[in-house]
Write a protein that binds this DNA or RNA. Sequence first.
DNA 1: TAGGTTTTAATTGTGCACAATTTAATTCGT
DNA 2: ACGAATTAAATTGTGCACAATTAAAACCTA
Lengths: 149, 149
Amino acid sequence: MKTLPDSAYNPILKLDNQLCFSVYALSRLITKAYQPLLESLDVTYPQYLVLLLLWEHEELSVKQLGEHLLLDSGTLTPLLKRMEQRQWLSRRRDARDERSVLVALAPAGRALQTQAAQIPVRLAEKMQLTEPEIAGLRTQLRQIMNLLS
Amino acid sequence: MKTLPDSAYNPILKLDNQLCFSVYALSRLITKAYQPLLESLDVTYPQYLVLLLLWEHEELSVKQLGEHLLLDSGTLTPLLKRMEQRQWLSRRRDARDERSVLVALAPAGRALQTQAAQIPVRLAEKMQLTEPEIAGLRTQLRQIMNLLS
DNA sequence: TAGGTTTTAATTGTGCACAATTTAATTCGT
DNA sequence: ACGAATTAAATTGTGCACAATTAAAACCTA
């Protein structure tokens, strides 16, 4: 008899792989769902996440942005440079700690907030989830995140 | 009174954003959790997904791989070329339809299956999820995927 | 306070991910 | 059968994502 792959025999292996793949595929689908909403602002999804943080906090260091977004300077530095070039934010060394770089919202970046206000609403509608469903799912994913990191 | 961002007022907006971010961040954490397990095989997570499919189906067209993985030829072609270079798989035009490229498992690719057998088990343990929990979560994510696509 | 450690960004290099376009093969309608 | 439309990969160009390294500033600590 021909040998079949383990995943054809072990339902847990298959489920585990399918769960990981579902998260991976859903993440890309969400980015794609955001894209037509964000492209009118000419913003990518990771850039939108940076803007969400700056709209709330006005000024954050690269390190703080990285802690919130779970991204390192290797990703953030070029991304922030592109956003700086479009005048959405400013980057300057912290005078009190020259290692640190402070990222502050610029007027053009603040102006994007009004245009972006409708974006998440439309996505929540598309996902057809109620408030408790969203909250429950988010909590589950966070718990898995905590177990993995 | 200073104007606060919408997300500070509207709990649904905040939850929606947090749910999307959780999926985005968890996806990267899963990839990172796989990485130390896969790096002994010198395989990336997307390459591992291709191998999973080939271990099950032996030969698939680029189009079929793309349908399973929700990836297009722009992503798959260079990825498959790298895997071909390592002799894990072969690529050849389909004689019956010269537009199509058939990707088949090579001996070295089949040999990886044995080494990789332990990988998902260890990840499932790390996530501390029971079989019904994994199944339920996967179903929920799939439903959202269907609503978005 | 001098020297070693730690912290913070930036840099370099590799590999996805995807939009847009191109090329070639097939299919379809007439 | 033939030209238009469709389909499948490949190509091109941009932007993450991250490991590994580098450089500079800040912090210990003896």
